[in-house]
């Protein structure tokens, strides 16, 4: 775009304020993480971030986050589909409450889920005779992460479904396709980028989640400790360098996920012709 004279005032102050505030609150503090851990040699760093207890926490955090995001992709798509395509009683209430995990403080979600899934809880008491224990087990982590991630999938898929052109489906039907074929070959390809975006957003949120998980997880070393808890544990032992090293690993993963999400959103925009 050619450099045109700016008619509107305030560009300088607005951008200046933005960059200053961004630097003070976000960029400088995050940079301090990378400066702190540079006290360690590479070998020491590697030993800290691959210690057995920390490695076990990666397995749980990433495994449970992937599983939760996959569960949310399936049921979130179903919920989005029902909200867009069907009329049913209580729909507006359901639609409004989908955002509950965004609005409900994570600690509140954590203790509520623990109360439900504990051995004598409303849900836990029915699972106990089946030999399924949720609270204070890795399964509890999964339940909390499903709760946290659900709105990401529903809210990325829903608008794309709403904008979907009826004519495509009518064309498919007039060519003899059944509903399942239409869904599989006409609707799903258009939804796929949005669904993947929702999946990745839910995954990214789940990896870093802390508040809703620690109450239900039981936090048993090597079994049900998540990676953010490892940072807290190290901090409580005044092991600042160790905490920072683990934080660095998590930050790098977050940056990769952020780039991935940006790419996926660009793909969604291209596939559907919608703005981001």
């Amino acid at each position: 775009m050619a450099r045109t004279t700016r008619v509107l005032p305030g560009f300088g102050p607005a951008l200046g304020l933005t960059l200053t505030w961004l630097s003070i609150i976000v960029l400088l503090p995050l940079a301090s993480v990378f400066l702190k851990a540079s006290n360690l040699s590479l070998v020491e760093f590697w030993d800290v971030v691959t210690a057995p207890r920390v490695a076990a926490s990666y397995r749980l955090s990433f495994g449970a986050s992937l599983a939760a995001a996959a569960i949310n992709a399936v049921f979130g798509l179903m919920l989005a589909w029902c909200l867009v395509r069907y009329r049913f009683p209580g729909k507006r209430l359901v639609d409004a409450l989908i955002d509950l995990p965004f609005a409900l403080p994570t600690a509140v979600a954590g203790i509520a889920l623990t109360a439900l899934y504990a051995r004598n809880g409303w849900i836990g008491q029915w699972l106990e005779p089946l030999g399924i224990q949720v609270a204070f087990k890795p399964l509890g982590v999964l339940v909390a992460l499903v709760f946290i991630g659900l709105p990401f999938v529903v809210r990325t898929v829903q608008p794309v479904l709403e904008d979907f052109d009826l004519e495509h489906e009518e064309a498919a039907a007039s060519l003899g396709a059944g509903r399942w074929q239409t869904f599989r070959y006409v609707i799903l390809p258009v939804l796929l980028p949005a669904l993947l975006t929702g999946f990745t957003l839910a995954f990214a949120r789940a990896v870093g989640e802390y508040g809703s998980v620690i109450f239900i997880a039981g936090n048993i070393p090597m079994v049900s400790e998540i990676t953010p808890l490892m940072i807290i544990t190290k901090l409580e032992q005044y092991d600042y360098v160790g905490a920072t090293a683990v934080a660095e690993v998590m930050l790098l993963i977050s940056f990769v996920l952020l780039l991935l999400i940006n790419g996926l959103q660009a793909w969604t925009a291209k596939r559907t012709g919608r703005d981001r």
Partner: peptide, 8 residues
């Protein structure tokens, strides 16, 4: 800040 863990 949305993609950074609150603990961090």
């Amino acid at each position: 800040p949305f993609s950074v863990s609150p603990v961090i």
